[in-house]
Amino acid sequence: MRIMMLAAALWLAPAQAAIDVYEFEDPAQEQAFRELVRELRCPKCQNQDISDSNAELAKDLRDKTYDMLVAGSSKQEVIEYMVARYGNFILYKPPLMASTLILWIGPVLVILIGLAVVLVRTRKRSGAGSGEELSDEERARLARLLNKDKEN
């Protein structure tokens, strides 16, 4: 019987995943917390915000965010703390500055370069066959080639 209870406890252990429960003094604090955990990127997961990440670091960041809000910090103060500690990478929307300029301009540049390449290649193709007349010698050769196909 004890073995069965031990087996059941081990089997059910993964199902008892930790769920973060945070209690707030007012709805404004809770709203600020929800917004912050969606705006901050998990440094370990990189493509998840700290609310979606199961990484231990993300849990620590959620706890720190909660502690700072309960202590009276504003959203901006929490963001400034996180940026000071982890850099602008922690923000899903990094500020426009010299070091992040490529993040903001890069996608536009890639699209513009792609359009330029398509336009240049299209014009080269359309320009190759138009505007030039065949010489008499080329017409005679073309006629011979066409007649050769009809004879076969």
Rank of each mutant, 00 (worst) to 15 (best):
M1G: 13
A7I: 13
A8C: 08
A13V: 04
A13R: 14
A15N: 14
Q16A: 15
A17P: 06
A18Q: 14
V21W: 12
V21C: 09
Y22L: 06
E23H: 14
E25I: 15
D26H: 14
D26I: 15
Q31H: 13
F33S: 02
R34E: 11
E35Y: 05
E39C: 12
C45D: 15
C45Q: 09
N47V: 13
N47Y: 12
S51C: 11
E56I: 14
L57M: 04
A58P: 05
D60Y: 11
L61S: 04
L61R: 02
L61P: 00
D63I: 07
D63P: 01
L69Y: 05
V70C: 08
G72A: 05
S74F: 02
S74M: 05
E77S: 09
E77I: 04
V78K: 01
V78T: 05
V78W: 01
I79K: 03
I79E: 03
A84Y: 10
N88S: 04
F89R: 11
I90R: 01
L91W: 05
K93T: 14
S99P: 06
T100L: 02
L101C: 02
I105M: 00
G106P: 03
V108M: 04
V110R: 05
I111M: 01
L112M: 06
I113K: 00
A116E: 00
V117F: 11
V118D: 10
V118G: 08
S126Y: 14
A128P: 06
G129A: 03
S130W: 01
G131M: 01
S135F: 05
E137W: 08
A143W: 13
R144V: 10
L146E: 15
L146V: 14
K148E: 15
